[in-house]
């Protein structure tokens, strides 16, 4: 797929905004930035189906809207099904001559809860049926819109309102569900991870996902100052640290072939990342060591998959 489209870089990004005016995201929201970049990458020939969540709530209080592209919200867990109907509807209307032929990208937007918890079944179904759509999961690692409740994407050791750290608990006691790998298991043509700290990489992946025929999935790391408890000016730095520590590696899986987009010769220690956020403040050295070990293992597994296809 390389070379099939012009890659984004300096001066190659549109100045047009597709989701902008009057939104109510928190100051320093990494998700809002990622969404803005993703929409710039997609352009105006899209229809966006949005799951209930931060993005939906922050962009659409009746009677106003932040959206300059066609946008629909119906429910929380059904976004992949709704986008299935949009895609099938457009395709058949064009085939029957009821609508002029054109390229309209069908894009689903959801949070980590709407994707890896409540929306998983609908998403798996839409992948399996091979609809031509792009699914963007904006992962802020908990139910932030309802007040920082844990999800299956919450990392081990994080304190949330429904898995709080206390005398008898370290907070989240399970490892983060590996949603990109679940997408890969559906044998869809394109899966990628992205982070707004790497804006051109993110935009290239979103555009690629939009252009691929068939289902595409981009999992976007979305730092959340409110839920992760960090100062509002740190989103970019925290995103970069997540990548540099190997906690959130940036990679692509095209037709099953893995590729690491950023591969540092040596990873930074996870402690550097963990200490930036209040949600990990309670962690003792032994827990941090456990997390370090887990990250090392997962990163090695990923590298092994990449190595399979290096030859």
């Amino acid at each position: 797929m390389e070379g099939k489209f012009i890659k984004f870089g300096k001066n190659l990004v549109t100045t047009e905004e597709f989701v902008a005016e009057g939104h109510s995201f928190c100051v320093g929201c990494g998700e809002a930035l990622a969404l803005r970049l993703a929409c710039k990458a997609l352009g105006k020939d899209v229809i966006i189906a949005n799951a209930t969540g931060c993005i939906e709530i922050c962009t659409s209080p009746l009677p106003v809207t932040s959206w300059a592209v066609p946008w629909i919200h119906t429910l929380f867990e059904n976004t992949a099904a709704t986008v299935s109907g949009i895609e099938a509807g457009l395709k058949i209307l064009m085939k029957k001559g009821k609508m002029p032929e054109r390229d309209v990208k069908c894009v689903a937007v959801a949070g980590d809860g709407g994707t890896s918890d409540i929306g998983m079944q609908a998403l798996s179904g839409a992948f399996e049926r091979n609809h031509d759509f792009l699914y963007l999961c904006f992962d802020n690692e908990a139910y932030m819109n309802t007040g920082i409740q844990r999800s299956s994407a919450t990392p081990y050791g994080a304190s949330t309102t429904t898995a709080p750290a206390g005398k008898m608990s370290i907070g989240q006691t399970t490892w983060k569900k590996n949603m990109p790998e679940i997408a890969v298991a559906h044998n869809i043509p394109y899966v990628a991870t992205a982070c707004p700290s790497y804006p051109f990489d993110l935009m290239n992946k979103v555009r690629k996902g939009g252009e691929v025929k068939g289902p595409a999935y981009v999992h976007i790391f979305s730092p959340c100052p409110t839920g992760w408890r960090y100062a509002a000016d740190l989103a970019i730095e925290i995103g970069r640290l997540a990548v540099e520590t190997g906690i959130f590696p940036l990679y692509e899986v095209e037709d099953g072939r893995y590729k690491l987009n950023i591969d540092r010769p040596e990873l930074k220690l996870v402690e550097e990342y963990l200490k930036t956020q209040g949600r990990f403040r309670h962690l003792l050295d032994e827990e941090i060591a456990k997390i370090q070990e887990h990250v090392n293992e997962e990163y090695a597994k990923l590298k092994a998959k990449v190595a399979c296809f290096a030859a």
Partner: peptide, 16 residues
């Protein structure tokens, strides 16, 4: 069925 009617929402929303 949840997805059946949800897909119908999407289809109807584009005028099918």
């Amino acid at each position: 069925e949840h997805s059946a009617l949800s897909a119908c929402l999407g289809a109807a929303a584009v005028g099918a």
